[in-house]
Design a protein around this nucleic acid. Structure first.
Lengths: 217, 217
DNA sequence: TAGGGTATTTAGACAAGACTAACTTTTATG
DNA sequence: CATAAAAGTTAGTCTTGTCTAAATACCCTA
């Protein structure tokens, strides 16, 4: 059984070794990310090596073993499912979910995560567009871009939507938008991050919440 | 800020000092409840006294101060709200909710509890019939008895229902039951805890889930 | 290739919270 | 009322995970 701290190290190590620049898994970088001294990180790396979760060698970059990677993916699964729950069900805003999910991800209960996944109808992406691993640790290869992240002035095309609730689908079709619709972002209102957008010659105003539900390319 | 362990001690102390027999708050009883040695409990009691949360004197029974009581009530509020969530929303069974709620109650976020309370529509009782304190720490004085807890052969009267969802209210009225209905429990099926009951001369079979939603006296 | 700067590791200390073993106080019993 | 049993306390140790300070290894550049 892993402690909360061990889990945090594994998760961070996953992020450091999996991004495009996977050359960042030195003791120091890891320590930085976890807001801990290099001495502490070194200590933990040795312990995780003992447990067969991390490939660590003195003065080298660290890597996750298969077991370590699997544990990290489970944690990421829990984190992103909780973020989705907080955002979709409890109506947290986009930027509030992370901090609370950091705590919730450490709750130990297989059943809880299964039931939560089912309740949320097996979402594939979290509110930030990051893919959610399934129970076996498989996940879509990359982040989906949401309409909320398109810079003002740029054009994009709708390639999907986050959820398929009747309310949302009804609304999006009432707006005259659908898959393949081409959109240009005209303005982002700083006050509430709502957007003025242009689609097929018509100008529409949508909320941040809406824009986070629309995947684009 | 209280640690998880400090919180556990306060909550247990609340239960030991608040029940009918409030004479149980010795170092040893507390240690028993928390599965810890008396030495450990003694240690913690001294610490909590320092923090002004517990009235502790050598060789005496311990009590909660007002601050300690308030902290304990917040914890109990969180515990019972999570139990309600697990039972009502995620479809956990009656006996599975406690263990997971023991973990969830330590999540630190005012906002989370507010939003959860709202999402659950401000429930007054948890799945075991225990009252849920409100944000100010007020709660109904005693446990409500549910139909599930009535022994076979005994009669009782419906005095309320746990939730007022359309589905549930429709079902209970279809069964011909209502407030003030007199019920006798004929048999409890060991397999799934469903009940055969008698009301106004008619025999009805109901599930455990149903029986937990009906408050009786 | 020799320094010097940076990154990493080691050693030793500390806090929380548990434990065991030994000691003290309270309580109950004869 | 004396004393033994039960309950509570103290002292010292252990583990986890942190820290600081000092030592060591790596690597880049002159």
């Amino acid at each position: 059984m892993l402690s909360k701290n061990e889990e945090d190290y594994l998760k961070e190590l996953f992020h450091l070794t999996t991004g495009e620049e996977s050359d960042n898994a030195g003791t120091g970088q890891l320590a930085d990310k976890l807001a801990v001294t290099p001495a502490s990180a070194n200590n933990m790396l040795k312990k995780l090596k003992e447990k067969g979760l991390v490939g660590y060698q003195k003065y080298g970059k660290s890597t996750l073993t298969e077991a370590g990677r699997a544990a990290a993916l489970q944690l990421i699964r829990k984190h992103r499912l909780w973020e989705t729950f907080l955002y979709e069900t409890l109506d947290f805003s986009w930027d509030e979910v992370h901090e609370v999910a950091e705590q919730l991800e450490h709750i130990r209960s297989e059943k809880l995560i299964e039931k939560l996944d089912k309740f949320l109808d097996y979402p594939e992406f979290d509110p930030h567009g990051d893919p959610i691993p399934d129970a076996q640790g498989n996940m879509a290869p990359r982040k989906k871009l949401t309409l909320a992240e398109i810079p003002v002035g740029q054009a994009c095309r709708i390639i999907g939507v986050r959820d398929s609730s009747a309310l949302f689908l009804q609304y999006i079709s009432e707006l005259g938008l659908s898959l393949k619709s081409e959109i240009t972002v005209l303005e982002k209102i700083a006050f509430d991050n709502s957007l003025r957008i242009l689609s097929e010659g018509r100008e529409i105003q949508v909320s941040e919440k809406f824009s986070l539900h629309v995947f684009v390319r």
